[in-house]
Amino acid sequence: MLELRLHGRGGQGTVVAAKILADALCSEGKFVQAFPEYGVERRGAPVKAFLRVKDDVVYERSKIYEPDHIVVLDPTLIGFVGIADGLKKGGWIIVNTTRKVEELGFDSSFRVATVAAKEIALKYHLGSESSPIVNTAILGGVVKILKLCSLKSLLDAVREGVPRKKEENVKAAEESYKKTKV
């Protein structure tokens, strides 16, 4: 079973990102479970979303305390919430940032990668400079680094899963996938 935790802020599409990944993986025959940290969501407040992926039925129904990998949609959360809490050794932390990996200050027992999701999102007019919607723009990189599913499955799920600007979101996810080096 693969377990992912996503960190973002209310309004960035963190929960939708988990759902899009779930849709993409389900379309490839996986059993998935995607859920938010249930609470009272407010714009700008730290939010978490979770994703479990398995070849057969997922029975565990708690939050994810020891994820295999972590996705950070908002880099300002680093140092503010426990991003790497419980992360398994060797797990990936994939961050939306243009900063260098070394500058992020994570323990060397983790693998860290960056995706310039904010820049990609703004290029396709997803959100605004102060409040970019980066979920689809980080997913391309996430899928490529973690080898979760095919690009086509992801793009189909993006098209289906975003409420508006469908083609812009698809392009953002595609560009993110192509620009991310593994």
Partner: peptide, 12 residues
């Protein structure tokens, strides 16, 4: 069904 644990959990 359980609130959130099922109601708002998306699964196959």
């Amino acid at each position: 069904l359980a609130a959130f644990v099922l109601s708002h959990t998306s699964e196959t």
